[in-house]
Protein backbone atom coordinates (compact mmCIF):
# COMPACT_ATOMS: atom_id res chain seq x y z
CA UNK A 1 0.00 0.00 0.00
CA UNK A 2 2.77 2.41 0.91
CA UNK A 3 4.56 1.65 -2.31
CA UNK A 4 1.38 2.17 -4.31
CA UNK A 5 0.70 5.53 -2.73
CA UNK A 6 4.26 6.62 -3.45
CA UNK A 7 3.75 5.76 -7.09
CA UNK A 8 0.57 7.83 -7.26
CA UNK A 9 2.31 10.69 -5.53
CA UNK A 10 4.82 10.71 -8.37
CA UNK A 11 2.07 10.75 -10.98
CA UNK A 12 -0.17 13.34 -9.37
CA UNK A 13 2.13 15.68 -7.50
CA UNK A 14 5.65 15.36 -8.87
CA UNK A 15 5.26 17.36 -12.12
CA UNK A 16 3.72 20.34 -10.36
CA UNK A 17 6.07 20.06 -7.41
CA UNK A 18 9.16 19.90 -9.61
CA UNK A 19 8.10 22.99 -11.56
CA UNK A 20 7.04 24.77 -8.37
CA UNK A 21 10.41 24.05 -6.76
CA UNK A 22 12.41 25.27 -9.71
CA UNK A 23 10.29 28.33 -10.50
CA UNK A 24 9.46 29.36 -6.96
CA UNK A 25 10.63 27.46 -3.88
CA UNK A 26 14.36 27.22 -4.55
CA UNK A 27 14.64 30.75 -6.02
CA UNK A 28 12.71 32.09 -3.03
CA UNK A 29 15.02 30.62 -0.41
CA UNK A 30 18.08 31.37 -2.51
CA UNK A 31 16.85 34.94 -2.76
CA UNK A 32 16.44 35.17 1.01
CA UNK A 33 20.01 33.92 1.52
CA UNK A 34 21.49 36.06 -1.25
CA UNK A 35 20.03 39.22 0.25
CA UNK A 36 22.76 38.82 2.91
CA UNK A 37 25.48 38.33 0.30
CA UNK A 38 27.46 40.25 -2.23
CA UNK A 39 27.24 38.62 -5.66
CA UNK A 40 27.25 39.19 -9.39
CA UNK A 41 26.05 35.87 -10.70
CA UNK A 42 24.85 33.75 -7.71
CA UNK A 43 27.77 31.29 -7.61
CA UNK A 44 30.19 33.97 -6.42
CA UNK A 45 28.12 34.89 -3.34
CA UNK A 46 30.02 36.14 -0.31
CA UNK A 47 28.23 36.60 3.02
CA UNK A 48 28.16 40.23 4.16
CA UNK A 49 25.47 40.30 6.85
CA UNK A 50 22.87 43.04 6.74
CA UNK A 51 25.03 45.40 4.71
CA UNK A 52 22.74 45.17 1.66
CA UNK A 53 19.74 46.18 3.74
CA UNK A 54 21.59 49.21 5.07
CA UNK A 55 22.67 50.16 1.55
CA UNK A 56 19.14 49.72 0.22
CA UNK A 57 18.03 52.60 2.41
CA UNK A 58 21.18 54.69 2.59
CA UNK A 59 23.00 54.50 -0.78
CA UNK A 60 20.56 56.94 -2.34
CA UNK A 61 17.00 58.01 -1.79
CA UNK A 62 15.59 55.91 -4.64
CA UNK A 63 14.10 53.15 -2.54
CA UNK A 64 12.48 55.48 -0.01
CA UNK A 65 11.14 57.66 -2.84
CA UNK A 66 9.75 54.63 -4.65
CA UNK A 67 8.20 53.37 -1.43
CA UNK A 68 6.54 56.70 -0.74
CA UNK A 69 5.33 57.02 -4.34
CA UNK A 70 3.93 53.48 -4.25
CA UNK A 71 2.09 54.07 -0.97
CA UNK A 72 0.58 57.35 -2.22
CA UNK A 73 -0.45 55.70 -5.46
CA UNK A 74 -1.91 52.61 -3.82
CA UNK A 75 -3.92 54.62 -1.31
CA UNK A 76 -5.64 56.81 -3.91
CA UNK A 77 -6.01 54.09 -6.57
CA UNK A 78 -7.55 51.55 -4.18
CA UNK A 79 -10.17 53.99 -2.92
CA UNK A 80 -11.04 55.30 -6.39
CA UNK A 81 -11.25 51.87 -7.99
CA UNK A 82 -13.36 50.32 -5.28
CA UNK A 83 -15.78 53.23 -4.89
CA UNK A 84 -16.40 53.53 -8.63
CA UNK A 85 -16.58 49.76 -9.13
CA UNK A 86 -19.08 49.43 -6.30
CA UNK A 87 -21.26 52.26 -7.63
CA UNK A 88 -21.20 50.72 -11.10
CA UNK A 89 -22.17 47.36 -9.63
CA UNK A 90 -25.10 48.98 -7.83
CA UNK A 91 -26.28 50.61 -11.05
CA UNK A 92 -25.83 47.45 -13.10
CA UNK A 93 -27.94 45.34 -10.74
CA UNK A 94 -30.99 47.56 -11.19
CA UNK A 95 -32.24 45.70 -14.28
CA UNK A 96 -31.53 48.57 -16.61
CA UNK A 97 -31.65 48.21 -20.36
CA UNK A 98 -28.26 47.41 -21.88
CA UNK A 99 -26.75 46.06 -18.66
CA UNK A 100 -24.85 43.34 -20.50
CA UNK A 101 -23.39 45.76 -23.00
CA UNK A 102 -22.25 48.16 -20.28
CA UNK A 103 -20.67 45.31 -18.34
CA UNK A 104 -18.83 44.20 -21.47
CA UNK A 105 -17.43 47.68 -22.07
CA UNK A 106 -16.35 48.31 -18.47
CA UNK A 107 -14.62 44.97 -18.18
CA UNK A 108 -12.76 45.01 -21.47
CA UNK A 109 -9.70 47.13 -20.49
CA UNK A 110 -8.86 44.51 -17.90
CA UNK A 111 -7.85 42.02 -20.56
CA UNK A 112 -5.30 44.34 -22.12
CA UNK A 113 -1.76 43.83 -20.89
CA UNK A 114 0.11 46.35 -18.76
CA UNK A 115 2.68 47.28 -21.39
CA UNK A 116 0.02 48.02 -24.01
CA UNK A 117 -2.09 49.92 -21.46
CA UNK A 118 0.91 52.06 -20.59
CA UNK A 119 1.45 53.16 -24.18
CA UNK A 120 -2.26 53.78 -24.79
CA UNK A 121 -2.40 56.15 -21.82
CA UNK A 122 0.88 57.78 -22.70
CA UNK A 123 -0.70 58.79 -26.01
CA UNK A 124 -3.88 60.09 -24.36
CA UNK A 125 -2.15 62.04 -21.60
CA UNK A 126 0.55 63.48 -23.84
CA UNK A 127 -2.15 64.50 -26.30
CA UNK A 128 -3.98 66.47 -23.61
CA UNK A 129 -0.85 67.97 -22.06
CA UNK A 130 0.56 69.01 -25.42
CA UNK A 131 -2.04 71.78 -25.63
CA UNK A 132 -0.47 73.32 -22.54
CA UNK A 133 3.10 72.78 -23.68
CA UNK A 134 3.85 69.87 -21.35
CA UNK A 135 4.39 66.15 -21.67
CA UNK A 136 3.86 63.36 -19.17
CA UNK A 137 7.48 63.46 -18.09
CA UNK A 138 7.66 67.20 -17.42
CA UNK A 139 6.29 66.84 -13.92
CA UNK A 140 6.01 63.86 -11.60
CA UNK A 141 2.40 64.65 -10.73
CA UNK A 142 1.41 64.05 -14.36
CA UNK A 143 2.92 60.58 -14.14
CA UNK A 144 1.24 60.02 -10.81
CA UNK A 145 -2.25 60.91 -11.96
CA UNK A 146 -1.61 59.14 -15.23
CA UNK A 147 -0.94 55.94 -13.35
CA UNK A 148 -4.03 56.45 -11.22
CA UNK A 149 -6.19 56.97 -14.31
CA UNK A 150 -4.64 54.01 -16.09
CA UNK A 151 -5.05 51.55 -13.25
CA UNK A 152 -8.59 52.74 -12.54
CA UNK A 153 -9.44 52.19 -16.18
CA UNK A 154 -7.91 48.74 -15.99
CA UNK A 155 -9.15 47.42 -12.66
CA UNK A 156 -12.60 48.97 -12.20
CA UNK A 157 -14.25 46.41 -14.49
CA UNK A 158 -12.76 43.44 -12.69
CA UNK A 159 -13.81 44.66 -9.26
CA UNK A 160 -17.22 45.60 -10.63
CA UNK A 161 -17.79 41.96 -11.68
CA UNK A 162 -16.93 40.76 -8.18
CA UNK A 163 -19.22 43.33 -6.55
CA UNK A 164 -22.05 42.43 -8.94
CA UNK A 165 -21.73 38.77 -7.96
CA UNK A 166 -21.84 39.80 -4.30
CA UNK A 167 -24.90 42.02 -4.71
CA UNK A 168 -26.78 39.38 -6.70
CA UNK A 169 -26.30 36.94 -3.84
CA UNK A 170 -28.37 39.06 -1.46
CA UNK A 171 -31.77 37.47 -1.07
CA UNK A 172 -34.62 39.46 -2.52
CA UNK A 173 -36.81 38.61 0.47
CA UNK A 174 -34.64 40.65 2.83
CA UNK A 175 -34.57 43.65 0.49
CA UNK A 176 -38.34 43.40 -0.04
CA UNK A 177 -38.94 43.19 3.72
CA UNK A 178 -36.81 46.28 4.32
CA UNK A 179 -38.73 48.18 1.64
CA UNK A 180 -42.09 47.19 3.13
CA UNK A 181 -40.86 48.36 6.51
CA UNK A 182 -40.19 51.74 4.92
CA UNK A 183 -36.40 51.75 4.90
CA UNK A 184 -34.87 54.47 2.72
CA UNK A 185 -32.60 53.41 -0.18
CA UNK A 186 -29.62 54.80 1.71
CA UNK A 187 -30.56 52.85 4.81
CA UNK A 188 -30.89 49.66 2.75
CA UNK A 189 -27.46 50.29 1.27
CA UNK A 190 -25.85 50.86 4.66
CA UNK A 191 -27.59 48.22 6.71
CA UNK A 192 -28.17 45.43 4.20
CA UNK A 193 -26.16 45.71 1.01
CA UNK A 194 -22.79 46.75 2.39
CA UNK A 195 -22.73 44.22 5.27
CA UNK A 196 -23.82 41.45 2.89
CA UNK A 197 -21.11 42.15 0.34
CA UNK A 198 -18.33 42.36 2.93
CA UNK A 199 -16.72 39.17 1.50
CA UNK A 200 -16.58 40.85 -1.93
CA UNK A 201 -15.11 43.96 -0.34
CA UNK A 202 -12.45 41.83 1.32
CA UNK A 203 -11.47 40.23 -1.99
CA UNK A 204 -11.55 43.46 -3.97
CA UNK A 205 -9.46 45.33 -1.43
CA UNK A 206 -6.99 42.47 -1.35
CA UNK A 207 -6.72 42.34 -5.14
CA UNK A 208 -6.48 46.10 -5.64
CA UNK A 209 -3.97 46.64 -2.83
CA UNK A 210 -1.64 43.84 -3.90
CA UNK A 211 -1.96 44.68 -7.61
CA UNK A 212 -1.29 48.37 -7.02
CA UNK A 213 1.67 47.61 -4.79
CA UNK A 214 3.17 45.24 -7.32
CA UNK A 215 2.48 47.38 -10.40
CA UNK A 216 5.36 47.10 -12.86
CA UNK A 217 4.49 46.87 -16.58
CA UNK A 218 2.23 49.91 -16.53
CA UNK A 219 4.84 51.94 -14.68
CA UNK A 220 7.57 50.89 -17.11
CA UNK A 221 5.54 51.69 -20.23
CA UNK A 222 3.87 54.91 -19.06
CA UNK A 223 6.84 56.89 -17.69
CA UNK A 224 9.62 54.37 -16.93
CA UNK A 225 10.13 56.42 -13.76
CA UNK A 226 10.72 59.75 -15.51
CA UNK A 227 11.33 62.54 -14.65
CA UNK A 228 14.56 61.45 -12.91
CA UNK A 229 13.09 58.39 -11.15
CA UNK A 230 10.41 60.47 -9.45
CA UNK A 231 7.57 58.27 -10.70
CA UNK A 232 9.37 55.02 -10.04
CA UNK A 233 7.42 52.48 -8.05
CA UNK A 234 8.96 49.80 -5.83
CA UNK A 235 8.90 46.98 -8.40
CA UNK A 236 10.56 49.15 -11.04
CA UNK A 237 13.16 50.44 -8.58
CA UNK A 238 14.06 46.85 -7.66
CA UNK A 239 14.30 45.92 -11.33
CA UNK A 240 16.57 48.88 -12.06
CA UNK A 241 18.74 48.13 -9.04
CA UNK A 242 19.27 44.58 -10.28
CA UNK A 243 19.78 45.23 -13.95
CA UNK A 244 20.65 48.92 -14.13
CA UNK A 245 24.31 48.57 -13.17
CA UNK A 246 26.67 45.86 -12.04
CA UNK A 247 27.53 45.47 -8.37
CA UNK A 248 24.11 46.19 -6.94
CA UNK A 249 22.59 42.69 -7.19
CA UNK A 250 22.79 42.16 -3.44
CA UNK A 251 21.14 45.50 -2.75
CA UNK A 252 18.43 44.66 -5.27
CA UNK A 253 17.76 41.35 -3.57
CA UNK A 254 17.61 43.02 -0.16
CA UNK A 255 15.10 45.54 -1.52
CA UNK A 256 13.10 42.63 -2.95
CA UNK A 257 12.94 40.96 0.47
CA UNK A 258 11.77 44.21 2.09
CA UNK A 259 9.20 44.54 -0.70
CA UNK A 260 7.95 40.99 -0.14
CA UNK A 261 7.62 41.51 3.63
CA UNK A 262 5.74 44.77 3.01
CA UNK A 263 3.29 43.22 0.57
CA UNK A 264 2.72 40.25 2.88
CA UNK A 265 2.16 42.40 5.98
CA UNK A 266 -0.18 44.84 4.24
CA UNK A 267 -2.17 42.04 2.58
CA UNK A 268 -2.52 39.97 5.76
CA UNK A 269 -3.43 43.01 7.86
CA UNK A 270 -6.12 44.00 5.37
CA UNK A 271 -7.50 40.44 5.22
CA UNK A 272 -7.62 40.30 9.02
CA UNK A 273 -9.32 43.70 9.34
CA UNK A 274 -12.04 43.15 6.74
CA UNK A 275 -12.61 39.45 7.52
CA UNK A 276 -13.48 40.43 11.07
CA UNK A 277 -16.30 42.59 9.70
CA UNK A 278 -17.83 39.89 7.56
CA UNK A 279 -21.17 38.67 8.84
CA UNK A 280 -22.02 35.01 9.10
CA UNK A 281 -24.89 34.05 6.89
Amino acid sequence: MRKASKRWFIVFVMPTLAAFSIAFLIPFFMGLYLSFCEFRTVSDARFVGIQNYIRAFSDNGDFINALWFTVKFTFVAVILINVIAFLLALMLTKRIRGTNLFRTVFFMPNLIGGIVLGYIWQLIINGILFNYGYSIISNSSFGYWGLVALSSWQMIGYMMIIYIAGIQNISNAILEAARVDGASPFRILRSIIIPSVMPSITICLFLTITNSFKLFDQNLALTAGAPSKQTQMLALDIYNTFYGRVGYEGVGQAKAVVFFVLVAVVALMQLYLTRSREVEN
Binding site: F20, I22, A23, F24, L25, I26, P27, F28, M30, G31, L34, T41, V42, T210, F213, K214, F216, L234, A235, I238, Y239, F242, E249, G252, Q253, A256, V257, F259, F260, V263, A264, A267, L268
Partner: peptide, 16 residues
Protein backbone atom coordinates in the same frame (compact mmCIF):
# COMPACT_ATOMS: atom_id res chain seq x y z
CA UNK B 1 3.49 31.60 -3.01
CA UNK B 2 0.47 33.66 -4.05
CA UNK B 3 1.45 36.69 -1.99
CA UNK B 4 5.14 36.68 -2.92
CA UNK B 5 5.83 39.40 -5.50
CA UNK B 6 7.68 38.35 -8.63
CA UNK B 7 10.59 40.69 -7.86
CA UNK B 8 11.48 38.53 -4.87
CA UNK B 9 12.43 35.59 -7.08
CA UNK B 10 13.03 37.17 -10.48
CA UNK B 11 16.82 37.26 -10.35
CA UNK B 12 17.44 33.83 -8.85
CA UNK B 13 14.70 32.23 -10.93
CA UNK B 14 15.99 33.54 -14.25
CA UNK B 15 19.54 32.50 -13.34
CA UNK B 16 18.27 29.05 -12.48
Amino acid sequence: SMIVPFQMVMFTMSKM
